[in-house]
C-alpha cells in the first residue's frame, strides 16, 4: 500500500503495561499522543505514517508531470486540485507522525537519504495523458481500499487524518475513471492509449498491497496493535473484484490471461505480479526512483531560503512589536 513492508519493531516493555495497553486496543479505545505506548508501537507507527506521508508527497510528481499538458483548461484545473489534495494528505500525515516525537525535518531527511521509503507505485513513469486516468482509477482506487479500514486504526491522530483523507479520495478516483471513460470511448488512438495505460499500471497497482501473506512475516504484531487492519492478499482480492467489472464497462482488457471468475470463492483468480520487480523497486531501482528523490531533494534545497527568510521576517516583526509596546 502507501506503506509497504512495514516491519513491526520488537518491544521490550514492562509486561504488565503491555497487557493493559493491549486490553485498551482490544476494547477499541484510541491511543492518544500523551498516553503510554510500547516503544515498538511508537517506532513502527513513525515508520508507517512517515512512509504513508512520503508517498502522498512523492505521489504528486507523476501527476504533476501532466498539469501543464492537460488537454483542456478544465482537466488542468481538476488535476491541479487533485494534486493539491495529495499535498494536503502528506501534511495531515506528517502532523500525525510528529505527535509521536519525530520532527518534520527529520522525516524529510530520512526520505532524502533513503532511510525511509515511499510506495513502489510512484517509481513508475506517467507517459501519456491516459496515465492520469489510470492513476486516479487504479492507484487512488487501491489506496482507498487500504485507507478506509485505517480510519479505525488504534492511533487517534492517524485515524483522524485517515478520515479527512478518505473524504477527499473518492473525487480522485472518479476523476480518473472519468478520464478513462473519455479515452475508452474516444478515437482508436485514444482507446489504444487507455489500454496501454491499463497494461502498464495493472501489476504495479497490485503490488501496492505488498507481498503475499505467505511472505509477509511482519503482519501479526501490527494486526494485534490495529495499525494494520487487513491482510495484503485480502485487500488485493477485494481490489481485483471491484476493478474487473469497471474495466469491462470501459471495454478494456485486464492484461492477465489467467483472470477468471471463481464461483467457489466468490472472487476472481488472477496472476500475481512479479515480486522480484517489487523488491527491486522498493530498494530504489524503479524506473523513476532516482528522478523522484532528485526532484524532492531539489525542492528541499531550492526552498531552504524561503524557510529561513520566513523565520527571519517573523523574528523581525516580533521585535518591532515588542519595541512598540
Amino acid at each position: 500500500m502507501y506503506a509497504q513492508m512495514i516491519k513491526s519493531e520488537a518491544t521490550q516493555d514492562d509486561p504488565e503495561k503491555l497487557a493493559t495497553f493491549q486490553a485498551r486496543i482490544d476494547a477499541g479505545e484510541k491511543i492518544e499522543p500523551k498516553d503510554w505506548m510500547p516503544a515498538g508501537y511508537r517506532k513502527t507507527l513513525i515508520r508507517q505514517i512517515g512512509q504513508h506521508a512520503h508517498s502522498e508527497i512523492v505521489g504528486q510528481l507523476p501527476e504533476g508531470n501532466w498539469i501543464t499538458r492537460a488537454p483542456t483548461l478544465e482537466r488542468k484545473a481538476i488535476l491541479l486540485a487533485k494534486v493539491q489534495d495529495e499535498a494536503g494528505h502528506g501534511l495531515y500525515l506528517y502532523c500525525a507522525a510528529e505527535t509521536l516525537g519525530v520532527s518534520r525535518d527529520e522525516l524529510t531527511e530520512m526520505l532524502l537519504d533513503g532511510r525511509m521509503k515511499y510506495s513502489s507505485i510512484f517509481a513508475y513513469p506517467t507517459l501519456t495523458w491516459a496515465d492520469m486516468g489510470a492513476v486516479g482509477w487504479l492507484v487512488d482506487g487501491a489506496a482507498i481500499m487500504n485507507q478506509v479500514p485505517l480510519q479505525r486504526t488504534s492511533y487517534g491522530p492517524y485515524a483522524r487524518s485517515m478520515v479527512r483523507i478518505c473524504k477527499e479520495e473518492s473525487f480522485h478516483q472518479r476523476q480518473g475513471f472519468d478520464i478513462m471513460m473519455k479515452m475508452a470511448n474516444g478515437t482508436e488512438a485514444q482507446k489504444r492509449m487507455a489500454q496501454d495505460a491499463l497494461n502498464r499500471f495493472w501489476y504495479p497497482s497490485l503490488m501496492m498491497f505488498g507481498p503475499s501473506d505467505k511472505e509477509s512475516v511482519h503482519s501479526e504484531q501490527s494486526m494485534a496493535w490495529k495499525i494494520k487492519m487487513n491482510s495484503n492478499d485480502e485487500l488485493r482480492q477485494k481490489f481485483v473484484d471491484q476493478t474487473v467489472p469497471q474495466a469491462e464497462y470501459l471495454g478494456l482488457t485486464i492484461p492477465d490471461e489467467t483472470l477468471a471468475w471463481n464461483e467457489e470463492k466468490g472472487g476472481y483468480d488472477f496472476a500475481e505480479p512479479d515480486w522480484s520487480e517489487f523488491f527491486d523497486v522498493l530498494k530504489g531501482n524503479g524506473p523513476c526512483s532516482v528522478e523522484r528523490i532528485e526532484a524532492r531533494q531539489k525542492a528541499w534545497d531550492d526552498s531552504a531560503w524561503v524557510r529561513e527568510a520566513r523565520l527571519a521576517h517573523a523574528a523581525k516583526k516580533q521585535a518591532a512589536k515588542v519595541a512598540a509596546e
Binding site: 518534520r104 487524518s161 479527512r164 517573523a314 516580533q318
Partner: peptide, 24 residues
Amino acid sequence: HVGSLHATDAAHAIQNARDVYTRR
C-alpha cells in the same frame, strides 16, 4: 480541533490553515 501545521507567525498560520484544512 482539526489538526496542526507549521508556520512562522499567526498570520502565516491562518494562511496555511486555509490551504490545508478548508479546501472544500
